[in-house]
Design a protein around this nucleic acid. Structure first.
Lengths: 210, 210
DNA sequence: GAGTGTGAAATTGTTCACAGCG
DNA sequence: CGCTGTGAACAATTTCACACTC
């Protein structure tokens, strides 16, 4: 199995999101056309994306909803739970710790760290805030699959370096900086400034005078 | 001026982020190589991205930091402030209302709406939570440039439809659904589930057995 | 010499069109 | 007959290479 474009993986997630709705509504099958509408793609692209991993549709009928959903969960690695640690217990960090979507989707936040003595020893969403100095020791004792970086921009790269050194291979970065990591480490960025500026650009294009 | 790929706009934002750091450090010039390292691109790509909007570098020297930063702010439409409304005052909405990064970057949250009577009349970050029924009337009285959708998934498309009808042309969507909007409307998605699943996929690829 | 600006080449990603199956 | 699966055409994006300027 070759490696797949990240845009394809994004679309697979969208298809799965839609399949969950179909499951809830009790639909037995969906066509590539229906999937395309909600995944922001063309029917041909849906078929191409899926054909990459095998052929699990029935010609003339479409795709079995439960079968395809199960297969996508397998492909995306969503058949297990993941241990997640959260670095940075400020505004963003606290909001993330309280976010129920993590647990719902199989991601368990198991520890929270901060560098600010005023926050250490406190709690966010029932979890004790630990000193960042304990990161290495804790990770050596019990691995984390994913680390969420919710520190100020200036601290993010340093934290990333320490996490990578301690063996974490997946980072979800909320700091508005581009992290430099070895190729074996995967980074997903959630950069709100970027999204806002994309909107600003689009509005500016449409009516530059204002 | 032709239209630019959205990936190019993303990179322009990243370059600008880096230029802010350079300004803070008092650097006078940067090369495409330095910009590339932090923007996650190649030097050639940086030059190509910038050359799209004109040539404001000096050969043998590089780009003037203040000049390029100013030009990028113009290109991205960041020379004015934007009026932002927030729909959904739940967990995510409240966190967003309190987020200082909005105002810092020129985006002013001017109103917050919710559909839950228990929340209406309350306050998030000093802003009164209004009934969603007032959306149309309020927007008719005073336009908003951008609307942030932080509602449950099931309500998001309906809210988007109403916002578009009321003349909002830029949406920042936090709900985990793909919104269908007319081509004249721009949507930026912040979909944390997608980012988590991309990490899950990458981890699964690396060691499928676990 | 160092580093930009840019056409042309290579690569990557998307759409088309149709054969093939249920 | 409808809808999938897929190679082949097409379009977009990235990289290369080098002329050119400071």
């Amino acid at each position: 199995l070759r490696d797949v474009a990240s845009s394809t993986v994004r679309r697979l997630s969208l298809y799965l999101q839609f399949l969950h709705e179909c499951e809830a509504r009790g639909l037995a099958t969906v066509s590539s056309g229906a999937l395309a509408e909600r995944g922001g793609a063309s029917p041909a692209q849906v078929r191409k994306d899926l054909s990459f991993f095998g052929s699990f549709g029935r010609r003339g009928v479409g795709y079995s909803v439960p079968l395809l959903a199960g297969r996508l969960r397998e492909i995306l690695g969503l058949v297990r739970r993941y241990r997640v640690i959260l670095v940075g217990a400020g505004r963003v960090g606290a909001a993330l710790a309280a976010y129920p979507g993590f647990r719902q989707r199989g991601f368990d936040v198991v520890a929270v760290y901060d560098a600010d003595p005023a926050r250490i020893g406190g709690a966010v969403d029932g979890l004790l805030v630990r000193s960042h100095e304990r990161l290495e020791a804790d990770l050596a004792a019990e691995r984390a699959d994913i680390a969420v970086i919710a520190t100020p921009a200036g601290a993010a790269q340093g934290v990333a370096d320490r996490l990578v050194k301690a063996g974490v291979r997946a980072l979800l970065n909320f700091a508005p900086v581009t992290l430099a990591v070895p190729p074996a480490v995967t980074v997903s960025d959630v950069n709100m400034a970027l999204e806002l500026e994309a909107l600003s650009y689009a509005l500016h294009r449409a009516s530059p005078q204002r």
